[in-house]
């Protein structure tokens, strides 16, 4: 790790200011992703603003009957919250399918949304990677890309977003509240948070530098069953090969794209009375593989069918 200075933020506005004013500053929340990347010299901020203790960890009811979850709430506390468990079981399920208990005890909602890809070439600084070094090339394109994206990728980057939590948030139609450099809080959606790689895969989210996620907002739970499924190489403590979150008629896919992928085509097909199989196929009709990840198209299709069927069966 390169040397950096550290400060603990006392309020959100000054944290935002500290990071907005310094292009080499970063927020530090749980640290479980940022420190990992800093140790590997993938990220080298010169200043860290610790937002972990900002009073932004509350989970509270919203006027419209939803929930507002503070960005600093740990993954564990969100999954353990009785309201989340009762009304948004898909979110609790998604969280507890991710990482390990120790990681979830540290990881925050904001950090999880902002976590970066686990593409093996991104993690190996001896390999070309457009995300790390714009213009360097993408090693994954013709490499060992078993876990690469099948949707929304570009010829410049085929990395996936590894988050579990955000797949459920996307299926639930969750919103994001973020504080900008001016101190104002703006609203966007989890589905719109991440930007397509295009030819700028190093630009990952719609947040401007120094913008701080302060909360995610859950609309009232949709009617219908909620299901989370994650396919992976071992039973636990492993990233997903494909994830599916179903919340009533709303569906999101994980591990298949640069972002948690709202499956609008599948939702439309279902709404039109089509079978789960037809719905899944509609969503994945545009899927493209890069070689070793070809199986993910079939895998995601089957997992989606199964998850929809399970949700329609009313089980969660």
């Amino acid at each position: 790790m390169r040397p950096f200075t550290y400060e603990r933020a006392t309020d959100a506005a000054s944290a935002v200011k500290a990071v907005s004013d310094n292009p080499n500053a970063r927020f530090l929340a749980g640290g479980t992703n940022l420190l990992d990347l800093m140790k590997l010299e993938i990220e080298h901020p010169t200043h860290l603003v610790d937002v972990g203790r900002l009073p932004l960890a509350a989970i509270e009811e919203t006027a419209d009957g939803g929930l507002r979850i503070g960005a600093m709430a740990t993954n564990s506390l969100v999954a353990a919250d009785p309201r989340v468990r009762a009304r948004y079981p898909v979110l609790a399920q998604a969280i507890i399918h991710g990482g390990s208990p120790q990681l979830r005890n540290k990881a925050t909602v904001g950090g999880n949304l902002m976590q970066r890809t686990r593409c093996a070439y991104f993690y190996d600084t001896t390999k070309p990677c457009n995300k790390r070094q714009p213009g360097a090339g993408c090693s994954a394109l013709e490499g060992l890309n078993r876990n690469a994206a099948i949707l929304g990728a570009s010829e410049h980057c085929i990395a996936t977003n590894p988050s579990d939590m955000s797949v459920a948030l996307t299926a639930l139609g969750a919103g994001v509240e973020a504080m900008t450099a001016t101190g104002a809080v703006r609203a966007l959606t989890v589905a719109d948070l991440h930007l397509a790689p295009g030819d700028t895969p190093h630009i990952e989210t719609a947040l401007s530098a120094g913008e701080l996620i302060t909360a995610v907002t859950l609309p009232p739970a949709p009617t219908g069953g909620q299901v989370y499924r994650k396919a992976r190489d071992r039973a636990s403590y492993a990233g997903g090969l494909a994830m599916v979150a179903v919340a009533g008629g709303q569906i999101a896919l994980g591990g298949v794209a640069y972002k948690p992928w709202r499956a609008l085509k599948a939702e439309a097909a279902l709404a039109a009375g089509q079978t789960p199989a037809a719905a899944a196929e509609a969503e994945l009709a545009d899927a493209r593989d890069s070689g070793r990840n070809a199986f993910k198209i079939a895998l995601t299709t089957r997992l989606t069918v199964a998850a929809i069927a399970q949700a329609q069966g009313g089980k969660s």
Binding site: Y6, R8, L28, G30, G31, T32, L35, D36, L48, D50, G52, S76, S100, P101, Q102, L103, N105, K106
Partner: peptide, 15 residues
């Protein structure tokens, strides 16, 4: 009282 991975935490975060 909560278990975490101490390798992915800075000591200064634990003041």
């Amino acid at each position: 009282g909560v278990r975490i991975n101490s390798c992915l935490s800075l000591a200064v975060m634990h003041d």
